[in-house]
């Protein structure tokens, strides 16, 4: 408890009026707290953290945390984050997104961020619904479940966020849930420490919209569902498909080494700086520009 108070005192914005915009019992508070504990464990200077988000309930998360915070447009958080990270690679950049934000309107940005392997962390808070707009079905609403725009049950099929991330080339992919709050924090910590693009999906509860329409009596009932319907990856290895039916796995799905984008960019810049043909070409473009020639690295003359 004292750890939580300490984390709250250190990382929640002073003077920023709480409570949050989130409904009482919302899992997003647990996810925010898990993220803050991860940052605290790593001990990054607050000035060197940027938290970026898109639109929706999760989009509001940066408002409350005392970092460089950027609340962008719907689905675009990762694209903005890409610019922040490339301009200031020394920053620890975290993008917090909901399932609709990350996987529907931002789906293209999500897969390309996975592919590029820029050293950032994407936290996907998956509550399987569009919460802020009133409970419309999302790309992770399970088949057959209800939303305000799927009043007769969802006829579409849900994305598996982590499988999508793995397929798109993310080099760290993990999943947990708000019931497993401690595990969620530890996975986010691992993700931030990972050198490359990392994705952590946290299954969350929107009892107000999803729960109400899908026969969950309370937030607690939804958390209990997470407890009873999730399996650690290790345990899942010994279970057959029938036993895993309807359950989600938790843990680290992928953790691999691949050259990180900025590292590769800088290596490329180093390489071309000593390539006379490349230097000559650039000089040709800016031939008349002494001022810019100054900006070429000295060894290029």
């Amino acid at each position: 408890m004292s750890e939580a108070i300490e984390v709250a005192r250190t990382y929640l914005r002073p003077g920023k009026k709480l409570p949050t915009v989130w409904c009482g019992g919302c899992g997003l508070g647990i996810i925010m707290s898990a993220m803050l504990r991860a940052i605290a464990a790593i001990g990054v200077d607050k000035n060197k953290v940027a938290v970026v988000s898109g639109i929706g309930c999760t989009g509001r998360m940066p408002t409350y945390v005392d970092f460089n915070t950027l609340h962008t447009t719907h689905g675009r958080g990762l694209a903005f984050a890409t610019g922040v990270k490339l301009a200031r690679p020394e920053l620890t950049v975290i993008a917090a997104m909901g399932d609709g934000d990350a996987l529907a309107i931002g789906g293209n940005h999500f897969i390309h961020a996975c592919r590029r392997n820029i050293d950032m962390t994407a936290i996907v808070a998956n509550n399987q619904i569009y919460g802020m707009t009133g409970g419309q079905y999302s790309p992770t609403t399970p088949h057959g479940k209800r939303g305000t725009t799927a009043p007769y049950g969802n006829i579409e099929y849900a994305f598996d966020t982590t499988a999508l991330a793995v397929g798109a080339g993310a080099t760290f992919v993990a999943r947990s849930s708000v019931y497993h709050a401690r595990e969620a924090g530890l996975l986010i910590e691992k993700a931030i420490r990972h050198k490359g693009f990392s994705v952590v999906e946290i299954i969350s509860n929107c009892h107000t919209s999803y729960g109400r329409m899908n026969k969950f009596a309370s937030p607690v009932a939804m958390l209990e569902w997470m407890r009873d319907n999730s399996v650690s990856i290790k345990a899942a290895e010994h279970m057959d498909a029938d036993a895993l039916e309807g359950k989600f796995t938790r843990g680290v799905m992928v953790e691999s080494d691949k050259p990180e984008f900025i590292q590769s960019y800088d290596e490329m810049a180093e390489r071309v700086a000593t390539d006379p043909a490349a230097v000559a070409n650039v000089k040709k473009v800016i031939q008349s520009y002494d001022a810019m020639a100054d900006r070429l690295k000295p060894e290029n003359g």
């Binding site: 940027a50 962008t72 675009r76 694209a79 903005f80 301009a87 293209n108 940005h109 960019y265 810049a269």
Partner: peptide, 29 residues
Amino acid sequence: QCLPLMGGRFIQMEDEIASIAAIVGASLA
């Protein structure tokens, strides 16, 4: 062609929405 040799960064994004998002993010940084 020029930015890598001049201490800057270039990136080709997945679309124009992402392109302007990235420059706004970089500008804030």
